[in-house]
Amino acid sequence: MSKEVELDCLGEACPVPLIKAEKALEGMDVGDVLICQIDHSCAMKNVPEWAREQGHNVEVEEVDDGEWEVIIEKVK
């Protein structure tokens, strides 16, 4: 059974969201989903970029003005 982990990065500036996401994903299993909540526009660029580079499935959802959820499915 795959699990879903929420990571609260609201109010955090670069590069904190990216490092937090890296650490969180490290401890997860293949098939698990990490949901990063972000409200820093430059993290909105580097978190999905990094995750796609690693080969994970990435989706970005705009939750509110200036607030996003980066949804990362760990594939390997």
């Binding site: 609201l10 109010g11 955090e12 409200d39 526009s41 509110d64 003005d65 200036g66 607030e67």
Partner: peptide, 18 residues
């Protein structure tokens, strides 16, 4: 730029350490 992209937000201060 932030307003026209509807990306403007007042952010909460998370910790005093910040």
């Amino acid at each position: 730029a932030a307003l026209i992209a509807s990306g403007f937000k007042f952010k909460k201060i998370k910790t005093w350490r910040q």
